[in-house]
């Protein structure tokens, strides 16, 4: 029999895993929704963000906050290099070609990081303000850092919706995503817009990496695990749907955490089962077909 307290604890853990997963899944979804490219290198961008976070915390006072910004900008710029250098050339090719190109960057980025930082694990601590925990009820606490990650993920979702729904650039991104040839005929510089979107998607992955850094042990292969989960989330939520990425991320986070209580050791498996179920029953994903 599992105690109630333990279940609630695991729910909170699940929510914080979900918050972290959302940041990577949402960038993947954004890039897929607009550019129609599945970016396999997204996990590697997350990993780069985590390393930038580590370096910032270890070398600067107040490094955590600088690290968040630097991770987002750094991963974003690496994303821009990937987009301009390679992905831009395969937009009109088959999906397999695109996937292989982005996969090549997984290998390249992983090796570069291994070369620079070695194979050892890195860990950092959250800044002092986040070390405590918040008392939710008399018997229930949540670590302050986890609460912070959840808040950041909710704010990110809100920000993306606001930008897409209410700004000129957001409208332009939605138009281009629904018909890029017509957008070009109306004067939109589509490659430049794509680069911008790729920057934002990659920056979100980098931000996710730096945010996750205090809760993970970091190695150059960190991205591999993360990208698989992000794909699972994207499939469950519906590729290209941000609401779907959000719900999918929290569902996956919760099933991993709570599932490990029900079937000890198999929590990680449950999201894959869920993904297969979604693919069989509703292949477009829970929120597929509903755009941002």
């Amino acid at each position: 029999m599992v105690s109630q307290g333990l279940i609630v604890d695991q729910i909170i853990t699940g929510l914080s895993i979900g918050g972290r997963l959302f940041l990577i899944a949402v960038g993947l979804s954004l890039i897929f929704g607009v550019l129609d490219v599945l970016n396999f290198a997204h996990g590697a961008l997350f990993m780069i963000g985590a390393y930038v976070g580590v370096v910032a915390v270890q070398s600067l006072p107040g490094g955590f906050w600088i690290g968040l910004v630097a991770a987002a900008v750094g991963a974003g710029l690496v994303g821009v290099l990937i987009e301009i250098g390679a992905i831009r050339r395969v937009y009109d090719r088959e999906e397999l070609d695109q996937l292989l190109v982005t996969f090549a960057f997984v290998l390249i980025l992983t090796d570069v990081v291994r070369f620079v930082f070695g194979t050892g694990q890195k860990t950092i601590e959250a800044p002092a303000v986040f070390r405590g925990s918040i008392q939710l009820t008399s018997s229930l606490t949540i670590s302050t850092y986890r609460a912070f990650v959840i808040v950041v993920s909710v704010l990110t979702l809100a920000a993306i919706f606001l930008v897409l729904r209410t700004t000129n650039i957001g409208r332009l991104v939605r138009a281009t995503s629904s018909d890029r040839d017509m957008a070009a005929l109306m004067g939109v510089n589509v490659p430049r817009l794509y680069t911008l979107v790729f920057f934002v998607g990659a920056a979100l992955a980098g931000l996710g990496g730096a945010l996750a850094a205090p809760t993970l042990s970091i190695t150059s292969s960190l991205g591999d695990q993360v990208i698989i989960r992000a794909f699972v989330i994207a499939v469950i939520g519906g590729l290209g749907s941000f609401g779907g990425a959000f719900v999918g991320a929290y569902l996956v986070g919760l099933t991993i955490a709570v599932g490990s209580l029900v079937v000890p050791g198999a929590g990680e498996l449950i999201p894959f089962v869920a993904m297969i179920a979604v693919l069989l029953v509703k292949p477009e994903g829970l929120f597929g077909g509903v755009e941002a």
Partner: peptide, 14 residues
Amino acid sequence: RVFPTLTVHENMQV
């Protein structure tokens, strides 16, 4: 080629 997911007004704004 109207943008299918945008409203009439948004199509014009773009």
